[in-house]
Design a protein around this nucleic acid. Sequence first.
DNA 1: ATTGGAATCGTTTTT
DNA 2: CGATTCCAAT
Length: 802
Amino acid sequence: MPPPHDDPHPFADEPHPFAPRTDRVRAPGPAADDAPPRLSPEHAAELKRRLLDDLTPPQREAVEHVDGPILVLAGPGSGKTRVITRRVVNLVLRHGIAPWHVLAITFTNKAAGEMRDRVAKQVTPRQARAMTLSTFHSLCARLLREHAARLDLPPGYSIYDTSDQNRAMKQTLEDLEINPKNFPPQQMLSSISNAKNDLLDAAAYSSAAADFYTRTVAKVYKRYEQVLTRNNALDFDDLLLKTVQLLRDHRDVLDLLRDRFRYVMIDEYQDTNHAQFVLANALAAEHKNLMATGDPDQSIYGWRGANIRNILDFETHYPNAKIVRLEQNYRSTKSILAAADALIQQNTARHHKSLWTDNPDGTRVACVTVRDERHEAEYLVEQFQYLHDKESLDWGEMAIFYRMNSLSRVVEDALRNATIPYQIARGTSFYDRKEIKDAVAYLRTIANPADEVNLLRVVNTPTRGIGDKSIKAVQAYAMTHNEPADRVIADPMGVTALSSRAQNAMAKFAAQLASWRAMAGLEQGRHVEPGLPGGLPGVVEPPTLAGFVETVIRESGLETYYANDKGDPDSERLANLGELVSSAAQHEEEAHADRSLSGEPPLSLSELLLSFLEGVSLVSDVDAVGSEGGQVTLMTLHAAKGLEFSAVAMVGLEDGLLPHSRALASDSEMQEERRLCFVGITRAMHRLYLTHARRRTVFGQTQAAIASRFLQELPDASIECDDLSEETDGFDDGYGDYQRSRAQDRQSEYPEGTLVRHPQFGLGKVLNTTASGAQTRARIDFPDAGKKTLVLQYARLEKVAG
DNA sequence: ATTGGAATCGTTTTT
DNA sequence: CGATTCCAAT
């Protein structure tokens, strides 16, 4: 396959007929009673009014568009989501397009869910159900599952998340005897991910590899693929890559899908990577009913493979495309919008867009200089308190954004001190928690016997006497005898390298696994020894998925393990496991409701398990972060995209932080940083605070900071600057100098080799000292008490003549 | 098999 | 500063 980079039409040999709509053709989907009702003219007129009445002319133009390619360039707060949902409804209700011809793709499950909810209010439940509203990844997972046979993809494949990938990569490097010090697993994975996003498989990557490093990556890529295949697993990027390959190599499947998905809509088009771009265009190539919505100025995932050119070049790909610009902003005040607009104008690689609003001027954007991050947090607490008390703003209408998660800590402390309720949109989601990952790993192992990565994760958690040594022995045996590891574990007596204790433990564990598989109705073609301890008494086939998950959690020992977890005083982990069971119950309920609605028989336990696991892999944010809840929301700028708050504060607007230091050298990265700033600013409806500190402690290192260059790019008329850093409240600059000089004194007071006496530790010798303001420390070797690091200010040291 | 100390290294993260 | 990870010691 030639490198597909610059080929906008991946299936170039395709004829491109402008296919007329043929409504009579029935695609797979609900039966005929779902046909759109005939509308009386009056009814149709009424419907039309209701659908279009409250729209502006450009919005209406987008909503009323039916056939052919269309690009909707939607500025922030311009009613994009409304346009998309309204168009879906319009297609179905007014143009009689069967709902199963509609495919709308979003990037997050949350967005997909919201779209479904909004559409569902305007069409019948059956119509809503028949539409495909999903994420790229869910769609791909579904297509791959449906056509697994075409790809020799055994059913029940696992979807590997980052931590699974890491394990697989470590295994890969071990196999290849490559030192992970020289070739860090993360870096390998990221190179492979980039390759996959560019639709380069291992062979294609290899033939393009020129230098030593790239050739090594090529080797690693190839082996990594083998590892995944052996484990019957796909990673996230594979979902896209394999789907594109499926469509490329199986013309009949492609035709089937093109016929089915006649109206394709892709949201956040500026964030599509090459694979997603090719996939979308492959589906739409025949009928060309592709609607792309997005905003190039909000493209902030370039570092993750998103290609902003996909949206910028839409007109080139589709010369006759209709272009609609949504430039009116309904969200922000004039001041805020003017600041955002002026900022983004500084970017060169962009199409012109003129943002405007009918909203009032509002308060000017507060641009505040503070002493340090503490002062910054205190200032914001003060401001938010004011907004809450005097302007009766709800806490839930306020948010604080930062570039890096690590900046949240100080803000958190300040909010907690002031007893202001807050929530953090944190990076670690529900399914990333250890205990959940453990439980899910068990379920994956049960569902997919080939999944060695999860098997090995689970085999000794909780510990059951199978150590690293034993695992290595099993792996070695499996390798030399060319047998899958799970089979070796099931019959470990032949592995001479194992102690008999380990052998017994393994046999017991294997029996346990087999009994779960039998319970789930997954026949693995292996007999279950009925008498083994694995077959616990009183185990009856659980009728429900939730019951099954519960059983596994209990019988695996995870329950007691986490119940007695002394490392964690708050036994939140057990509750989380309980939540996993509830989410299984919920999944089951939804699946059953769905099936009965379409008159299909209910899913079996094993089918339920597979679909549950797929959901677990692809749904990450269970704890949805919204503006609800009456709490101030703290999150990264990236996480803020798509949200809005009445009052927004952005902290750390300093060179090296907001244009992040890693972006300073590259123009394109600098522009992405600017877009990130733009995204942050445009989240604010009424109030916006931009703060920067004179000095800031990052990674324990206090450094002078200078205001972000982005602040200089804001128009004077819409901002109000305030320098609070000189205000005296006992912390004037002289004090800092004083502290620093004291630190110097203390440090020079105890040069290396000085003998000292400590009231508790006795005699010791100074190994070294580190100057760090008041926190100047000395490392001291006490023969009686060992080596200690002490803060000179507090340690009551006495010099000893030596 | 657990634990503690030392060493290391720091963006962002829709799936 | 901190989280993570790795190795050595019990």
